[in-house]
């Protein structure tokens, strides 16, 4: 229709189902609008003017977990917040991925004490860890790119499990 009338017949592109689906999954991945602490500010920086996360189709944050594919745990998770986080994760529709952003979310960071969960992987399974306190926006973007690589390497057999 639109494209063919302008560019003529583009022909047919053949590819595997895996590649096509994984391309779709990485190209428009919607993160959950979920900020906890300091790292959330760097996450906002990454989406704002200078770093412009929309270059990777990642700028559209969804406020509802039902509509999002990725949860970026940006900041320290406290014992009081942990059940809420788990519930948010459970509410997300499959397929879903988790990035643990920052030291606090990855391992407790400088706060080795009674209030902080020592690593968010105690509550939800994490795909990519991003180090830093807080990580620079470039680091977060790198983490997201790493996740994209990981998704592109997924095979049909993994989807079922």
């Amino acid at each position: 229709m639109g494209v063919t009338s302008k560019l003529g017949n583009l022909g047919i592109v053949t590819t595997t189902l895996e590649t096509a689906v994984n391309w779709g999954r990485t190209g428009a991945m919607w993160p959950l609008l979920f900020g906890l602490a300091c790292c959330a500010i760097e996450m906002m920086s990454a989406q704002a003017s200078d770093y412009d996360l929309s270059r990777f189709g990642m700028e559209l944050n969804r406020a509802s977990p039902r509509q999002s594919d990725l949860i970026i745990v940006a900041g320290r998770v406290t014992r009081k917040m942990a059940p809420v986080l788990r519930q948010l994760y459970d509410q997300m529709a499959d397929p879903k991925w988790v990035i643990s952003m920052g030291d606090c979310a990855s391992c407790g960071g400088v706060y080795n004490n009674y209030a902080i969960v020592q690593g968010v992987d105690e509550i939800i399974p994490v795909d990519v860890y991003v180090a830093g306190c807080p990580p620079r926006p470039e680091q977060l973007i790198h983490g997201i790119m790493t996740l994209h690589e990981k998704i592109k390497a997924e095979r049909i057999v993994h989807w079922a499990s």
């Binding site: 602490a37 320290r76 406290t78 400088v110 706060y111 004490n113 209030a115």
Partner: peptide, 11 residues
């Protein structure tokens, strides 16, 4: 509040 209580004072 308290969802971000980090225990900074105690630390």
């Amino acid at each position: 509040i308290g969802f971000l209580h980090t225990g900074i004072e105690k630390n």
